[in-house]
Amino acid sequence: MIEVIDLKKSFAGTEVLKGVNLNVRKGETVVVIGRSGCGKSVLLKHLIGLMKPDSGKILIDGVDVTTLKSEEMYEFRKRFGMLFQGAALFDSLTVWENVGLALLEHTDLSEEEIRKKVCQKLEQVGLDRLDDMKPSDLSGGMKKRVGLARAIAMDPPVILYDEPTTGLDPIMADVINELIRRLQKQLEITSVAVTHDMKSAYKIGDRLAMLYGGKIVFEGTPEEVMASQDEVVRQFVEGRAEGPIPVYQE
């Protein structure tokens, strides 16, 4: 369903992605793990067309998204939902307006029908009676859940998660992981998540891919990652300062 082929991207002369290759099959969840600043979010933003690569292809259902024109890209994005690291809720809008914005913009549903659908989505993420609150009134966990409700509002076949548990306490992080897992099973969504939280990666991922040095250096199931003898993978998943991965990045 999603095929990333030899993706390269540089910023101000620094090559962040040096030829990334990755396959995501329909209905599966692939978690890209790696150190902060290794290019995980950059990879994710390429998948949804927020960034243009220097070279390489991204095929989604056979369509190369890197060649789409602006109007075509907007149309294509209706098939995606994305949960941002900081939730990225629109702070001038209420919770219901945040969750229902895409429905208001892209469907002919009445306000009443949209409100009903927003309530359903909020219930799916374990929230209710928040409709008229503003994002500034919500806790970090609530914001993430509203962000998740917004991501699934249009029932997209693909959801991208950028650090879904970052900044949350361990209990709330687990709640979000459970929620992501449940939504994947219920809605049969294809997902790509990026995280450095190994607990989250093991819990939500069908397959894990490690991004290091601008390339995917290891791919496997959570069990295969746990059993891996690759020194780079071992150092990262065990969170050790000593090993082949330099502590201070160049």
Partner: peptide, 12 residues
Amino acid sequence: TEQIDALETLAI
């Protein structure tokens, strides 16, 4: 705060 990116991802 990535709200502009969020708009883009909602195809807006």
